[in-house]
């Protein structure tokens, strides 16, 4: 019997494979439960403690830093194929605290708390002095640019009328004061774009089909607007029920990254927006 107090927990190295396994389970959980925005990828493991759990198993108390990728959360592209948002594009990081249970070799998330924050303007301009910064998503110029871009996309489309799901990202071009770059998520409706006279009569498809658009709206000196927009619909994914977190005493925590609370009865993933 060792002398002295024994720590109740153990501390493997942050780059230890077992720590990384728990961290990757946490990142997977983030991306399956994000309500909006972009998928995140693991950047750094900050700390790790492993607690014994009665009657069996261990709980990994892990703190991780993540970075935003360019893949929207509804984009079925595997995370490994998603690019990290570069600093010159105004990167966004996530700071997350997780409790991950390992039992019988299986990892499951007990609690999750994440905050996200954009890089500072100073950092962005240090690597790219003229690069645009993120703009507030509720700015009237942003909302207007999204409306104009979506209308232009629908006007040119031979397919379904697309409805706005969320404004995901926006930037004001610094050298062209009147240019607004926007990224937004859309969903297909049961209307044909060219035939729509009253969008309020259009309904989302029963089997939801989401897409993503990028557009730039530039106001010209005569007051007219130049619009460039491209929209892509994602391949529909088979709906699979998400595992419920195994939480004896689950923690519901508000977060700024947009995660669904873990104690919330889990709807189908496509309905979580």
């Amino acid at each position: 019997v060792p002398h002295g107090p024994m720590p109740a927990y153990r501390e493997p190295a942050c780059d230890d494979p077992e720590t990384e396994q728990a961290a990757l389970a946490a990142v997977d959980y983030i991306n399956k439960h994000l309500l909006r925005g972009y998928k995140h990828t693991l950047n750094q493991i900050d700390s790790i403690r492993v607690w014994p759990r009665r009657p069996t198993g261990e709980v990994y108390e892990v703190e991780i830093d993540t970075l935003e990728t360019t893949c929207h959360v509804r984009d079925p592209t595997p995370l490994a194929n998603c690019s990290v948002r570069q600093m010159k594009e105004h990167a966004v990081e996530g700071d997350c605290d997780f409790h991950v249970l390992k039992q019988d070799g299986q990892l499951s998330v007990l609690s999750a708390k994440c905050d996200s924050s954009p890089d500072s303007a100073e950092d962005v301009h240090r690597v790219c002095p003229n690069c645009p910064l993120l703009a507030p998503l509720n700015d009237s110029r942003v909302v207007h640019a999204v409306e104009v871009a979506l209308a232009a996309s629908n006007a040119q489309s031979n397919g379904s009328y697309l409805q706005l799901v969320e404004i995901s990202r926006a930037q004001f071009a610094p050298l062209q004061a009147a240019a607004v770059y926007v990224e937004f998520a859309v969903a297909a409706t049961d209307c044909v774009a060219k035939d729509v006279t009253d969008p309020a009569t259009c309904n989302l498809l029963a089997e939801k089909q989401y897409g993503f658009c990028r557009g730039t709206v530039t106001e010209k000196v005569d007051g007219a607007e130049d619009v460039t927009v491209t929209c892509n619909l994602f391949q529909t994914q088979p709906v699979t029920p998400q595992p419920q977190p195994e939480a004896p005493t689950p923690v519901a925590e508000a977060d700024a990254l947009g995660l669904a609370p873990v104690v919330q009865p889990e709807p189908e993933p496509l309905e979580m927006i």
């Binding site: 501390e11 493997p12 190295a13 942050c14 780059d15 720590t19 990384e20 990828t41 693991l42 950047n43 750094q44 493991i45 900050d46 700390s47 790790i48 830093d65 970075l67 990290v84 600093m87 990167a91 990081e93 890089d119 500072s120 950092d123």
Partner: peptide, 29 residues
């Protein structure tokens, strides 16, 4: 007490292993 040449003395300077935080995969902001 003496040590063999090339053998780090006990408690002497050596590579410091920092268990945490872990490596940065992309960049730190």
């Amino acid at each position: 007490k003496g040590v063999l040449p090339g053998t780090p003395a006990a408690g002497g300077p050596g590579p410091v292993i920092r268990p945490c935080p872990g490596r940065i995969r992309y960049f730190k902001i």
